[in-house]
Design a protein around this nucleic acid. Structure first.
Lengths: 242, 242
DNA sequence: CGCGGTGTTGAGACCTGTCAAGACGTGTGG
DNA sequence: CCACACGTCTTGACAGGTCTCAACACCGCG
C-alpha cells in the first residue's frame, strides 16, 4: 500500500507541502485498485460517477469525439495523476477517459472526498489547485492547436511530457517510455497520423529526438524547447502554500 | 450592492442550490468594484495575485501568446463569470486576462476566499465546480481547434454564447450583443480574420445568422447547432448537489 | 505462416493563410 | 461642415501547410 501513491505524493509535493496527517488522509481515500487493459474506454462521457480514479501506472487520456468519428485528445494522463478528480464536483464527465496502455488505478469513492473537504480545507484547496493545473495544461494545448505549426506542436508535447514524467521519476536523461501510436499523437495534436509521421521524421532528421520501440529520447533539448517556444511556467513547478 | 452579483448568482443557481447564508457569504466576498476600458491587459500572466475578479458587466478573455505575436484566446468570459477564481489556488495565472469591451468588475480578496473555504465546504465545492466548468468549456474549444472546420468552429462559438448569455439574461430571442471584432473571433478559433470574414459570410449567405452593429442574431438555430454538432452537456446545465 | 496494427512514402487536392488593396464608418481636428 | 486618419470589414489572387487516398514495408503475435 505504501508505494501505491508514491508518485501521486511526488506530484503534490512538487507544488505544496503535504503534512503527515494530510498524507494519512490521502492514503485513506483509496478503496481498492484495479488493472485495466490498453485501449479501453474506462469512463464514458455523461455517465454519473460516484468515485474518482488515481492513475498508478500506465497512460490514459481525455477524449472527445465528433459524429464523423474524428477524435480529439484533450490531455494525457500519466502515473500519479488524479485523472478524474474533477468528476468529484462535476458528477459526470464531458469527455471519455481512455487507456492508452495497460493501466493500474486506485479507486477513490466520492463520499471519502466529501469527508476530506469537510475536515481538510488546505488539502481541499490543494486538490482544487490540481484540477486547475489540468486546466492550465489544456490551455497550453489550446495554444498549440490554435497557433503552433505541426512541428512546434509535437515539440511542445515532448517538452511537456519530459517535465511531467520527470516529476514522478519516469523520465531520466531526457529519455522516457512513450507508448502512443502515431495515430494517437495525431489525436493529441489535431493532425493526421500521416502528417505526424512526416513531422516526426523532421525532428529525427535534425537530430533532435529519437523514437523507437516506444521509447523517446531527446537528443537536443534546447533545440526542442526552442521549436516549441516551451516555457514550463504553466506547469506550476514552484512550491506555494495553496 | 444587491444587483451587483445577480448574474453571478443566476449562473451558480443554474447548477446548484445556494442557501441564504451562502448567498450572504458570497456577497461578503466583494471588497469593491472597478471600471476598466476595452482592450486592456487586466491581469498579466505570471504575476502573483492576491485577489480574484468577478465580471459584472462586459466581455473579457483568457489570452496566450507566441513570440511571433500570434495570440490565442482560450475562453471568453461574460457577465456573472468569476474570471480568475482559479487564480485563488494557482496564485499566478498562466495566461493574460484581457478586456474585449469596457468592463465593470468586483474585486474579491483571496483571504476572504480562504475564510470561505474554512467555513463553507459546500460552497467551496461549488466554486471548485465552477473552475472545472471553465475547464470543460476549454475542452470543447480544444475539440473545435483540433477537429472542427472553420464553419463548424464559428457555429459552435455562437451556440455556446447563446446558452451562456441566456443563463444570465443577456440573450433573448436568440439575439445578443457580440462586441468582438473579426480579428478577435479569429483569435478564439485559431483562424485569421480574413478567413473568419469569409466563414461568417457563408453563415449569412445560408440565412443562419445576422451580425451587424455588434449584435448577433441567430435566424436558424437548428441549422447552426447542426453545423456545430452542438451538445450543451459540457455546460452542465442540470442542477446537482455538488 | 498469415494477419492486423503500425509506420512509411508518394501524388494530388483542398482548406486556410498571406499579401494587398479598397470600402466603409466613426471620431477628431481644422 | 469638411478633411482626414484609423480601425474594421471585404474582396481577390496566390501560396502553402496539411489532408486524403493509396500502396507498401515492417513486425509481433496467434
Amino acid at each position: 500500500m505504501c508505494a501505491l501513491i508514491e508518485k501521486h505524493l511526488l506530484k503534490l509535493r512538487a507544488r505544496d507541502d503535504v503534512g503527515p496527517q494530510e498524507e494519512q488522509a490521502i492514503r485513506g481515500l483509496i478503496s481498492h485498485t484495479v488493472e485495466i487493459p490498453a485501449d479501453r474506454i474506462f469512463i464514458r462521457a455523461g455517465r454519473e460517477i460516484s468515485e474518482s480514479t488515481m492513475l498508478l501506472e500506465g497512460w490514459m487520456a481525455r477524449a472527445k469525439d465528433l459524429q464523423s468519428g474524428q477524435r480529439q485528445l484533450a490531455e494525457l494522463q500519466v502515473a500519479g495523476d488524479f485523472v478524474d478528480l474533477h468528476g468529484f464536483v462535476l458528477k459526470r464527465l464531458d469527455h471519455d477517459l481512455i487507456t492508452l496502455s495497460p493501466c493500474r488505478i486506485a479507486v477513490v469513492p466520492h463520499d471519502r472526498l466529501t469527508a476530506l473537504t469537510e475536515r481538510f480545507p488546505h488539502l481541499t484547496r490543494l486538490y482544487w489547485f490540481m484540477t486547475n493545473l489540468d486546466a492550465a495544461i489544456q490551455r497550453e494545448w489550446t495554444l498549440s492547436l490554435g497557433r503552433r505549426t505541426a512541428l512546434s506542436r509535437l515539440a511542445q508535447l515532448f517538452c511537456e511530457l519530459r517535465v511531467r514524467l520527470g516529476i514522478v521519476g519516469l523520465a531520466k536523461d531526457d529519455r522516457f517510455d512513450f507508448p502512443l501510436t502515431q495515430v494517437e499523437v495525431g489525436e493529441c495534436l489535431g493532425l493526421t497520423s500521416v502528417h505526424v509521421n512526416r513531422t516526426l521524421q523532421e525532428l529525427r532528421r535534425r537530430g533532435i529526438v529519437e523514437l523507437a520501440g516506444r521509447q523517446l529520447r531527446i537528443l537536443d533539448l534546447p533545440a526542442l524547447e526552442d521549436i516549441a517556444e516551451f516555457d514550463d511556467a504553466y506547469l506550476y513547478l514552484d512550491k506555494h502554500r495553496r
